[in-house]
C-alpha cells in the first residue's frame, strides 16, 4: 500500500470520529426510545471487539499454542478485574515465555 493511501485512510477515519462525537451533541435533543436500537447499541461494542479478536488472535504470534497461552492468561486476569495494560502486557509475557520454552525443547524454531 502506498503512503498516500495510508494517509487518506487515517485522515478519513479521524474525521469520521470527530463527526461521530461532535455532531449529535449539537443537533440532537431527543432521547432514543426504541428498545431494539438501544439494545443494539449496547451490544455492538462487545460484538465488534469479539469479531476483531476471533479468529485473528490465534495467528498473532509465531504459533497458535503461544497465542492460546496468552489468551487464557488475558481472559483470567481481566475476569479478576486487572486493568487493560496489565492484561495485555501479561499476555505478551506469557506468549513470549511459551515460545522460549518451545524453542528450548526444539518444538519451535
Amino acid at each position: 500500500m502506498n503512503s498516500q493511501n495510508i494517509y487518506i485512510i487515517l485522515i478519513s477515519m479521524a474525521i469520521t470520529m470527530i463527526a461521530l462525537r461532535a455532531i449529535p451533541l449539537l443537533f440532537f435533543k431527543k432521547k432514543i426510545e426504541n428498545k431494539f436500537l438501544k439494545s443494539f447499541f449496547t451490544y455492538i461494542p462487545g460484538t465488534v471487539l469479539t469479531a476483531l479478536i476471533v479468529p485473528e488472535v490465534f495467528s498473532s504470534t509465531s504459533t497458535p499454542i503461544s497465542a492460546w497461552a496468552g489468551v487464557i492468561v488475558a481472559v483470567v486476569l481481566s475476569y479478576f478485574g486487572r486493568g487493560l495494560f496489565t492484561v495485555s502486557v501479561c499476555a505478551v509475557i506469557t506468549s513470549f515465555i511459551t515460545e522460549v520454552i518451545m524453542r528450548s525443547m526444539g518444538i519451535l524454531n
Binding site: 461494542p45 462487545g46 471487539l49 469479539t50 476483531l52 479478536i53 485473528e56 488472535v57 498473532s60 504470534t61 509465531s62 503461544s66 497465542a67 496468552g70 489468551v71 488475558a74 481472559v75 486476569l77 481481566s78 475476569y79 478485574g81 486487572r82 486493568g83 487493560l84 492484561v87 495485555s88 502486557v89 501479561c90 499476555a91 505478551v92 506468549s95 513470549f96 515460545e99
Partner: peptide, 17 residues
Amino acid sequence: PVLGIMLYGLFIAMVIP
C-alpha cells in the same frame, strides 16, 4: 513476534468486564 498479541490482550480486557 509475540507483540501482536498485545492488542488482542487490550480487546480481551475491554470485553470481559
